[in-house]
Each structure stands twice: as structure tokens, then as C-alpha cells.
Design a protein around this nucleic acid. Structure first.
Length: 160
DNA sequence: GCCAACGTTGGC
DNA sequence: GCCAACGTTGGC
């Protein structure tokens, strides 16, 4: 199975790239996905070792901050059952969990974060989902060719 | 903070 | 099953 490529969005006010780098083992749970299309991608397509662009949304400018990888494949998101969580889903059934999450680990930081205007302007990035009107999906597949172009722009630096 | 886009809910 | 109302996302 060839490695696949993704873009995961996060609001840095909630959880930022720096938060991930500072986390234990530079790893976090990616809880809170509450969209069926994103859930299905996690369940059906997202595998250990897949590469992930970490994207900051709802900031100006939005930007890809670095590269992470999937280190644990889809499993039930416990917050769907926690009434105190903002991700609580009262209709989720413990016997048939509705919402899934994966774990991701930071791998390389971009020396030069690649912002949305740059993504939009680059002629080799036509068709990239995040630049399209209405691309609200929080888990997006990325074409290998697009991955290579963006990685080069970001000048990734291995985390030590 | 605004608001367009779009996903989900629920009455019928 | 339609679709209006509603809630959320996310760029600006």
C-alpha cells in the first residue's frame, strides 16, 4: 500500500503546530472530527505512515506549518461519549461508535510556512482542495505531485 | 467580527 | 424524500 498524503486543519488557538512539537513524543490524538466525509476518510483511507500537512486555519494568513505522520490508525474518539466535552455527541452509541480519530506525530517543521495566498498563486497547485472555494473539509487528501511541490516550498527541517 | 458557503436536522 | 431553518467553518 503506497503512502498517502493529507492536509489536516487545526485552529491554532485550539491546537497549534507548536503545541504538537511540544507534546510528549511530539504526538497527539486528533479528536473532534464530526463530519462524515472526514470520518470516512480516516476510517477507509488513512493508514500508519501516511504523511500529513499541518494547516493553521482561521488565522491570517492561513498556512501549512509542517509535516506530521499518522502513528495510530482510526479508533473511536472517546469524547463523543463525554457529556463535558465540546465534542460530545448525545446520539453516539458506545456499541457502535460514530466518530473516529487517529494519532499524529510531528516529523518536520517548515522553515518557511506555506501560506494560503502562496498555495493559490502557484501554477503547479491547481486542484489542491484547500484552495478551492468551499473547501471546508478538515481532513483533505493531497495529491503526491502537490505534496512534493509544497514540501519544497516549505523547506522542511527535521525535528531533533 | 462579518458573512458566504455548506453540512445537518427535522417537520411535513 | 424535500427543503427551510439552523449551526458551523473559515477566509477576510
Amino acid at each position: 500500500m503506497p503512502k498517502k498524503y493529507w492536509l489536516f486543519k487545526s485552529e491554532p488557538d485550539v491546537f497549534s503546530w507548536d503545541d504538537l512539537v511540544a507534546a510528549k513524543n511530539r504526538t497527539t490524538t486528533w479528536e473532534g472530527i464530526r463530519n462524515y466525509q472526514a470520518r470516512n476518510l480516516l476510517r477507509d483511507e488513512c493508514r500508519n505512515g501516511d504523511q500529513v500537512f499541518f494547516y493553521h486555519s482561521r488565522v491570517n494568513p492561513p498556512a501549512i506549518m509542517g509535516i506530521a505522520q499518522v502513528v495510530k490508525e482510526a479508533y473511536p474518539d472517546p469524547e463523543q461519549f463525554d457529556p463535558k466535552s465540546k465534542y460530545y455527541d448525545p446520539s453516539a452509541d458506545p456499541d457502535a461508535p460514530r466518530w473516529l480519530m487517529v494519532d499524529v506525530q510531528a516529523v518536520k517543521a517548515f522553515r518557511k510556512p506555506v501560506d494560503l495566498p502562496t498555495l493559490k498563486a502557484h501554477e503547479d497547485l491547481d486542484g489542491l482542495m484547500v484552495t478551492k472555494r468551499g473547501a471546508r473539509l478538515s481532513i483533505q487528501p493531497v495529491e503526491p505531485i502537490h505534496w512534493r511541490v509544497i514540501s519544497r516550498l516549505g523547506q522542511p527541517k527535521k525535528l531533533t
